[in-house]
Amino acid sequence: MRPFRYERALDESTALAAVAEPGARFLAGGTNLVDLMRLGVESPEVLVDVTRLPFGDVHETVDGGLRIGAGVRNSDLAADDRVRMRYPALARALLSGASGQLRNRATTAGNLLQRTRCPYFQDVTAPCNKREPRSGCSALEGVHANHAIMGWSERCVATHPSDMAVAMAAFDAVVHVVSRDGGRVIPLEDFHRLPGNEPERDTLLEPGELVVAVELPKPTYGTRSTYRKVRERSSFEFALVSVAAVLLIEVGEVAEARIAIGGIAHKPWRAHVAEAALVDKPATEESFRAAAEAELAQARPLRDNAWKVELARETIVQTLLELA
């Protein structure tokens, strides 16, 4: 492990000033960053600890939504009554992630910003464009049974590992960001990028920007939501495929549908094609299947992961049926 400097920021401006130094990174729960430092994947010069910043609360917005501080721990967010009642898919997604110990450490912003678990990204002796731009992608022709089926590029076929972000995408969340130049709001759906020619960039965040909150809009009255995570073991495991679905059904027909899929792309995959196909259709298995198939018509499986297309289809169908 390379030596690094540690600084604890007590307010936003100090944090933003500290992170302006070359090689500086924010540190929150550290559950991913510190692992990657041990592996030599990340080697920051300075760690700016932002856990003392006043971003540890969840509060209601004037519009009836929920503003979640960047520093709110995953376990606290999952236990928040307002999250459990109004955004059950988010509570379920959070509780399906990692382990109890990790959820106690991990923060909202840290969860969004966690890196892919692609094995080649974590192995500094293997080529990886995300870790070392233009070194090549080992997964494209290598071991990739769990890699992306949507939106990948020749440069990178990794998937985003978060559960929480998938549920937030389905709730039309937005990310509040500040920098020394001011602040901006980024829809969560756009926050994470597809790899394209720059797989080293996971998100739209610019250097020096700090995530301060994620805001969830007020859910439409009568919507139901849930989160289904498919995995090989019952706990402490990333999703093979996961689905967050928010559904409003009126007189047997789908009035509103928002679906996000995890484990299949470089970002939480918002299934707009499926959503459009569902609106005004009867809330039946037949409609759900047609919608899932329409979405997955865009899938481009790799040599060894065509099975994930079927898994994604069936998981979408079953998740929607649960809400119908």
Binding site: P119, Y120, D123, V143, R233
Partner: peptide, 16 residues
């Protein structure tokens, strides 16, 4: 071997 840690080389956990 490409999965040389306990996150990638899975063994059953209590929940299993």
């Amino acid at each position: 071997f490409v999965n040389p840690d306990l996150a990638q080389y899975r063994v059953p956990v209590n929940a299993d």
